[in-house]
Design a protein around this nucleic acid. Structure first.
Lengths: 339, 339
DNA sequence: GTGAAAGCGCTAACAC
DNA sequence: GTGTTAGCGCTTTCAC
């Protein structure tokens, strides 16, 4: 394997390598006579020819490789994105390179540089910070790059994400419908678009219901259980009454429930809570988590399609696609306690 | 970016491209005078030179890319493996290509072929079937390949996995210690090494405790909740009494618990059950799952190290490494019911 | 429709 | 120590 070169095929078919190349290249196969094409194809099959993509890439500066940049693959929301992207890319004859930055900016920068050196044709980036110079650079250079899940302040790059606004609105409406009025938001980090936008959406939804938003938003430092627990601790320290919590995501919700539980405040008896993302097994907890389901697989697939379009044609309109989300009502929400 | 070539650096430094190449290549930098090295390095930094890995690879037939072949990235046990491998590889200056075969053999075959065409230096394979002609081919060709998590019948390739035998033995011992005697095993598919070896280990452990193994093993068709539920249904259909179940993995255990629960048989009141893998959130279920913790991140890292060794030197001894596992006792195991 | 020739960016032999 | 030369495997002008 890897031993049969185009020259060998050409020799076997009794043609010039250039002709063999044309016969095997769908784009220019028309320039070659049918008979020759047949002969070359037969030879290629017979010898088990596998084109050397490196050599092709060196010549065409096209590698048919796309890279997916992920902050942390062990966070359960990313695997479906990877999967969706991988499937679309593979189907299109592309190879997916995965890089896990461990949420570190320097790693991200060096990885992106190295991948470009490897000649990748484009990036799908799931690590976007709200202010992200690295992505601004890519945008400026016109290097094919699609943002997924999180976007930047400067929306110069196409983006595919879930409809955060709608998701939060559904949560607030559901809680209000159950009779809650003292609702607080454990927000995500403000250096992520999801953190910011969910918080904005929360305030907007509260206002729509003529509820005060004063002192109702507590920012968590990360999308983790630890940060959620810390947020809940700060919430309790305030001694401001609340009957419901809209958490920025499932992990934050879980952490908050843990912390509140340790303080003897239990859900759904004492308060209601909603998550976001509907990670695996959220339906199997006790109580099962009411949360917002986001179509992550579709998100990855969609982002991959956008990237392929860009690579094939020219810079796309930097559209921001919002995929519809849905509220999944389970056991962590109910009527507010009567005291 | 990607515009600065070695020639440009050489011109800037006033040397021949070959000299610049040597100055920048750690392996042969000694053949160049210190002064020249300095000058070349300075020029490279100044111009922002990034070596073109494709061109280098074409010349050296080394791409510094390793591929990880995964059956299904959305199965929560694989992300940590990916992460562990990615970290070791990245640190060594390698790039990781991920491919998700969706558990389909044809996809796997075509992906592996395509990746070899892309010039990857080696594979880490997590999809091994018990009989796997594709892997036998790679082994025969001496292509650097390390198996992770699952291995093949013909152990011609190095393998890094968890200590399945020990894990199952711990489960059985724990259950026996609680007083269980009627223990059954919901086994994994027999076309995986984990399925076969856990079942073997189960039988061995039972015999060690002088317990009969007749009719105690039921094979599930896959490592999924559905298959677990189907296995539990077959178990109930037998009408043979049991007080404990050793499930081949967490998903199978969850599926079984669902199916048994629907039939009014609940855990831990009516029976005990153990899982395997300790996936995320298994500690948050009700009851929390007693299971075997497997060091997946370390597994991925270890496999990557083995691969790097192979790529750097020569074919390693085809050693089989077993990483230690530990039993995590939680709520799904207890004393058998008294009737 | 096909062949000839050049070259993508880099590195390994071989000179000097 | 450094320059010269050649070539990795492929594609793409340019002739014919």
């Amino acid at each position: 394997m890897q031993r049969v070169r185009l020259v060998d095929v050409a020799r076997d078919a009794g043609v010039h390598p250039a002709t063999a190349s044309r016969a095997l290249n769908p784009a220019v196969v028309g320039e070659v006579s049918q008979a020759t094409v047949q002969r070359v194809r037969r030879s290629a099959d017979k010898l088990g020819y596998v084109p050397n993509t490196l050599a092709r890439g060196l010549r065409t500066s096209r590698s048919y490789v796309a890279a997916l940049v992920i902050p942390d693959i062990t966070n359960a929301l990313f695997p479906p994105i990877v999967r969706g992207a991988e499937q679309v890319l593979t189907e299109a004859g592309f190879t997916l390179v995965l890089t896990d930055t461990n949420s570190a900016t320097e790693v991200e920068r060096s990885q992106i540089a190295s991948l470009r050196a490897h000649g990748v044709d484009g990036f799908i980036v799931a690590t976007a910070s709200w202010h992200d110079p690295l992505l601004d650079e890519l945008a400026t250079e016109g290097f094919p790059t699609v943002l997924v899940n999180r976007r930047c302040a400067t929306s110069a790059l196409p983006f595919v994400g879930g409809d955060d606004q709608q998701g939060v609105r559904l949560c607030v409406e559901h809680l209000v419908g159950q009779g809650h009025r003292d609702i607080v938001h454990l927000a995500g980090p403000s250096n992520t678009s999801t953190g910011r936008e969910r918080a904005d959406a929360f305030r907007a939804a509260m206002r729509d219901h003529r509820l005060s938003v004063r002192q109702t938003v507590i920012e968590c430092s990360a999308y983790t259980e630890q940060a959620g627990a810390a947020g809940a601790a700060r919430l309790m320290a305030r001694r401001r009454p609340f009957t419901a919590v809209v958490a920025a995501n499932d992990l934050v919700a879980l952490g908050a429930m843990d912390a509140l539980g340790s303080a003897g405040v239990t859900c759904p008896r004492d308060y209601s809570i909603t998550g976001f993302n509907d990670l695996a097994f959220m339906d199997k907890l006790t109580p099962a988590l009411t949360t917002v389901r986001v179509p992550f697989t579709e998100m990855g697939a969609h982002a991959a399609r956008r990237l392929l379009e860009w690579i094939a044609d020219q810079p796309p309109t930097a559209t921001q696609s919002m995929l519809p989300v849905e509220l999944v009502v389970r056991g962590t929400t109910g009527a507010p306690p009567v005291d």
